[in-house]
């Protein structure tokens, strides 16, 4: 079972559940105010959205909500945690991933397709992925800022770097590789009708866990 955490203001939880189902997995919601993950949780998704309306800082309030205690225990025990967009911001605010997400270089929201390079293939998420992925970004505060020398950068925007991230980082993992955050939205690339199926591989990795 994959648990998709739902905060007030989460937006992409339904899409994440459909993405898990598209690769043959089962998914259910975890409520932000709960103190345990659903029984049988094998992996966790923190979906995109504007949890708590981005009040204070994106992800800041959600990172301190009750559900994050069991998410942290799950991660500490080696379980997979995937944070997408706002989920990535929550993981950084929670200290489960290094760095922070700053406002985009353009200072405005950016919604468009991007080409990602998989630059670290040694995480449970990326082992089976192809070399490049076509997946959309859609965010206002998506420029990763941190120390590239000490961070596992897993996904890169390559030369284009549309948001102005340090080291063109699109997705970063913790040292163990079991917690991954990325700004692009793999749940929006799960069907030929949507223009790409390159996002399915990340959800397949969760289902394999």
């Amino acid at each position: 079972m994959i648990a998709v955490v739902r905060f007030p203001g989460s937006l992409d939880h339904d899409s994440a559940i459909r993405a898990v189902q598209a690769v043959g997995g089962q998914a259910t919601y975890a409520w932000h105010a709960d103190t345990e993950l659903p029984a049988g949780t094998r992996a966790v998704v923190l979906p995109g959205g504007f949890s708590y309306g981005d009040h204070l800082r994106p992800g800041a309030i959600a990172s301190r909500s009750p559900i994050m205690a069991p998410v942290r225990r799950h991660a500490d025990a080696g379980g997979l945690v995937l944070g997408i967009c706002n989920g990535f911001q929550v993981l950084c605010e929670a200290g489960l991933l290094p760095g922070v997400l700053r406002t985009n270089q353009s200072t405005s929201f950016v919604c468009r397709q991007v080409e990602l390079e998989v630059v670290d293939r040694h995480t449970p998420f990326t082992r089976e992925l192809g070399g490049s992925l076509s997946i959309p970004i859609k965010n206002h505060d998506g420029a990763w800022f941190g120390d590239p020398a000490t961070t596992r950068i897993v996904l890169s925007y390559g030369a284009e770097n549309p948001l102005g991230a340090v080291a063109s980082a699109a997705g970063v993992a913790n040292a163990a590789g079991n917690v991954l955050g990325l700004m692009p939205h793999p749940e929006e690339a799960t069907d030929p009708l949507l223009g790409s199926t390159d996002g399915l591989g990340l959800f397949a990795a969760l289902v394999r866990a």
């Binding site: 992409d12 995109g48 950016v110 919604c111 949507l194």
Partner: peptide, 14 residues
């Protein structure tokens, strides 16, 4: 204009 709008959320935009 439309690059500043999330025109995808919901994963239904064909």
């Amino acid at each position: 204009i439309y690059q500043q709008y999330d025109h995808l959320v919901g994963a239904n935009t064909v």
